[in-house]
Structure formats: structure tokens, C-alpha cells
Amino acid sequence: MRWVTYRSAAAGGERVGLVEDGQIHGLRAPDRLLDLLGDDGERMAGAAEEARRDPLEVVDLDEAVLRAPVPVPPSIRDFMAFEAHVRNARKSMDADLDPEWYHDPVFYFTNPAAVLGSGDDVPISPGCTWFDYELELGVVVGRGGADLDPAEAEEHIAGYFIFCDWSARDLQLKEMRQGLGPAKGKDGASTLGPMLVTPDELAPHRKGNGFDLQAGVTVNGRTYTKTTLGEQYWSFGEMLAYASRGTRLVPGDVIGSGTVGTGCILELSVLHGIEEYPWLRPGDEVVLSVELLGDLRARIVEGAPLRPLR
């Protein structure tokens, strides 16, 4: 199944819809995807039958205004599951990969209030001149749980989507020198979508801890990133299990894989030079694509002016 949250003309607000054959079959109720979560998938399956049998409306997917599948998640944890990304990013700081990275799948919390949907403009963070995209795979937690093991944690995934972690690299570098962060370097925007795809659709493409899916990014029509999602060191089951250790995951929580190898300008600039892969600027059109999951589109715009603290 494929689900979207979209702006409905018929309902006059946001609605949840089932996507089939390029069309959205809008649900009459509920109006939040979050309300279809919390069990082993029975609510979602029942809602799909209702959407097919008696839709509120049928809208072409290409003409719909999409929101993030879960527009305001309870929390967002972003991991670093791809070894190639970590190695390449460390080169920018003349550092090697820390052996501790192989012991636990580390993450940071980012801002649920800054979630955007496909097609939304993305403002550059105030004071930033090194603005970057990060191509990731994301999941939504379907069932809550605490102290899970990796096998059962995998069963708690409601679906997958593209996750773009927009990054102010110069701000990130400054704050992480103080031993904290990333914080403001990642605080401005995360784009999720364009749709939520249930695990059964990705299962045939499983490769080790990841998925054998083609992925890429273009900026103003030029290919920047071209890669696959197969070389994932930490599985989502392991990441969810670690996230649930000593605490509780709740339905709607978002987990990001971290950036795929060469999935950001930081890496590309280290490998090929910043002149070849310059930082994002206002007016840039960015498209992130993953096989089966669709295209995530964004236009970069000028952000708010920097207001001095002192």
C-alpha cells in the first residue's frame, strides 16, 4: 500500500489518501495518517478497503498538493547507518571513522516542527552559506514499544519514505566544535515523502541490512548523487531497537537512516571539489528520487535574515 497526506479541495483541509494507479483515493475519516497507526496494520488495511469502496474524492497524484505523510511526528531520530557517508564526511575534517561507530547505531534528535512535504519551498537557515541536502531513507513507527530486539522492532515499522535532512554545514561545524549538536545546523527543515510505502512492497528488494533500490539527486536538472540503498551497515530493526532501549517508541515516531554514500554535497565536495559541486543557493530546484518511493521535490529559497544575539 501507498499512502499520502494531501490538501483536499472537497474537505477543505488535509486528508489521508490511498495511492493506486497514479490516483489518490481520499479517506472520509480519519484525516490523519497517525490515526491509522498503533496496531499490526489492520487499521491501515481496513482503511484501504474503505478508500477503494467509498472514496471522499479521487485526485490525480501529479496534481495534488502533498504534505509529509506524518506532518508533525511525535519525534524524529536521525541515525548514521551508511559507512561510506561517515568515511567521506570524516575526510572533510581530516579525521578517520571512529571504531566505536561499529558498536552502536548513533543518532541525534531533530525538529518535528520543521517538517515539510514534497513541493514545499525550503528556506536556507539564517546565517548559512553552506546549505546542503542529505538523501536518506526514513520510516514511521506503526506500533509503540520499549526495549525491543531487532527482529521484533522490524515488525513495528508502518512504512518507508524518502527523508531529506537539509543541513547548514557551516553552522553545524561551528556548534559541533563545542561538543554538542548537530542542533541549529539541522534545525531548519526536514522534507519527508512523497508517500508512505508499506514494508511488503520493499521486502522483495531486501539486500543485507538495506534495500537494492536505485536512488539519486538532481540540482537544477544536473545529476549530483547517483547511488543505491543496498550498502546499509545498520538495519532499521537495529536502529529501532537501539532507539527503544530504556525508553518507548510511539506510533508516528520517525527514524532516519542517515545519509547514503555520496548522498550530500559535503561528500561530493570532498571527493571532487566544491567548484564542481557548489552549495545550494536560492532558486535551486532539488529532486531526490528513490526507486518505488517516488520523487521528493523542493525549491531552495532565501531564509530569514540573521538577527544578532548581542
Rank of each mutant, 00 (worst) to 15 (best):
E238V: 06
S244I: 00
R281E: 15
A243F: 00
G258C: 05
E276L: 12
G252W: 02
P308F: 10
E291Q: 10
I255W: 05
P308L: 14
G258P: 04
V290M: 11
P308E: 15
R297S: 13
G252Q: 04
T262G: 06
R297M: 05
L288I: 12
D284R: 08
I274A: 10
S289G: 09
Y242W: 15
L268T: 10
E302H: 01
G258M: 12
V287M: 14
P282E: 10
I300C: 05
E276T: 13
I265Y: 05
V290L: 08
E291H: 05
G294M: 03
V260Y: 15
G303F: 08
P282H: 15
V286A: 09
G261R: 01
T259N: 01
C264D: 03
L240H: 10
G283P: 14
E291C: 11
L268N: 06
H272S: 10
M239C: 09
L288A: 14
L249E: 02
L292I: 14
G252A: 06
L266I: 15
L240N: 02
G256K: 12
G246F: 00
V270R: 12
I265N: 11
G246H: 01
V250W: 01
G246N: 03
S244W: 00
I274E: 11
A304Q: 11
S244M: 05
E275I: 03
D284W: 14
V301F: 04
V290K: 03
G261Q: 02
E276C: 13
R245K: 13
V286W: 04
L288T: 06
V250A: 07
H272R: 10
S289C: 12
R245L: 00
G273A: 13
R299F: 02
E285F: 15
L266N: 11
V254I: 12
L249R: 04
G258K: 00
L268M: 13
Y277W: 08
S244Y: 08
T259D: 10
I274V: 15
E302G: 08
V254K: 09
A298P: 04
S244L: 00
I265C: 04
L292A: 08
L249W: 01
G294S: 06
V254T: 09
V301E: 13
L288E: 14
